[in-house]
Amino acid sequence: MSWKYESDILVVGAGPVGLFTVFACGQLGMRCHVVDAFSEIGGQCIALYPEKPIYDIPGFPSVRARELITRLREQAKPYRPKFSLDTLTTGLRRDNRWFFIQTSKGDEILTRAVIVAAGPGAFGPNRPPLAGIEALEGTSVHYWVTDPQQLRGKRIVIAGGGDSAVDWAIVLSDIAASVTLVHRRAKFRASPASLSALLQLSDNKKVDLRVPFQISALEAAEQRLEAVTIEDMDGKRETLDADVLLPFFGLSSDLSALSEFGLGIEGSTIPCDPLTMSTRASGIFAAGDVAFYAHKEKLLVTGFSEAAIAARSAFTYAYPDKPYHFQHSTDRGVPRPVSA
């Protein structure tokens, strides 16, 4: 296999920390190629809570996750990153100081260093055990919402009791024909503020709460959902007319795609040195939730700082003969494209 792409830095993960890594590397004159298992840029911010406000981003008293991703993309855009989405890293070989990264698409990426900003790793939905659900996925069954307007006027059944289920019930109550939230327990795991808003919508008949119930069957015709059967703990069944089912039972994460990198993965994290963000593998660095060290704070602002440190360390590794000159972004001026 001959390499198809070449970059200074391979970034694993296109979530918020991965996008800021592109900017941090671009500030140092390095080009990035970003690989992500998800089909869209934005990671869990887009998959799980695009409309949810985030309050701990410096300079933003409140910013919705979707807007944050949009702004991070704009910040990274001048540095012309390449993106390989819906793609896993499947192998690695080294030649002197170069890495050759194999992907699930059969491509090979030549890069000088690697920064892993993969959050919890490649993630996928926890699919409920319902007969025929696979045939409806992508048309009537969705595990995340990328464009709420596509659900306008639909009869929607949401299953789950966490933040995603509750938040989407709140958001979609304004645009859907009906929203029914099904949860097998009377107690929800959502934040108190979201739960309070949900209960208010329930009182106003804008969201129909069915608790404690769980979904037991789906009715469909021509690969389109028509109804959902729910069942309480005593076996009593009801049928709900439905156009769309949104099962929010969490995501399963997996770092096995990085198993050949020699990172000493521990569960869903990679041990690293907080002073350099270096891992156990020379030339591979980590940032964001995937990076672990003593007293780690899993905040976005922490991940952004780690991305800047990792970029500095990757520059030193990739270009050992080049002097590193620190400059403030105001000294560098308007971001300019990194030369090809």
Rank of each mutant, 00 (worst) to 15 (best):
S202Q: 12
L195A: 01
T276W: 09
N126P: 01
M1N: 06
T139N: 02
V301C: 02
Q149K: 07
D56S: 12
I175W: 09
I101Q: 08
P247A: 02
L195E: 02
W168F: 13
A24E: 15
E231F: 05
F188A: 02
K187C: 01
P247F: 06
T269E: 12
S196F: 01
L92A: 09
S305N: 05
V34G: 11
C45L: 14
I230V: 15
C25K: 07
G235R: 15
I170D: 06
T111N: 14
L136T: 01
G26K: 03
E238C: 05
M1I: 06
T239I: 15
L218S: 08
Y5C: 02
W98I: 08
G119C: 11
I175P: 10
A310M: 10
D254R: 04
Q327G: 00
V211A: 06
A37F: 10
R127N: 01
L299Y: 12
E74V: 11
D56N: 14
F100D: 02
V211Y: 01
W3R: 05
A24K: 14
I270Y: 14
E51F: 14
P148N: 05
E74L: 12
T103P: 06
A135V: 02
E134V: 03
I158H: 11
G262A: 09
G303L: 05
D331P: 07
D56G: 11
H183I: 08
A294Q: 15
L130M: 10
R152Q: 13
E6P: 07
E266R: 15
A287V: 09
D243K: 12
T103C: 09
Y49R: 03
A318M: 03
P323A: 13
L255T: 06
T180K: 02
R336Y: 09
E266P: 10
A177H: 05
R71M: 15
T180H: 01
P320G: 05
D321M: 04
V290P: 13
C272P: 08
R155A: 10
G235S: 13
A65K: 00
L136V: 07
R66E: 13
P58I: 13
F315Y: 04
K4S: 11
A291W: 13
R185A: 07
G15R: 13
D241N: 10
R185M: 07
G91Q: 00
V145Y: 11
L209N: 07
P53D: 10
G132Q: 00
T279Y: 10
T276F: 06
T330H: 04
F249E: 08
S282G: 03
P192R: 09
Y293R: 11
S84Y: 01
T330Q: 03
Q327W: 00
D163F: 05
D163A: 03
T146P: 02
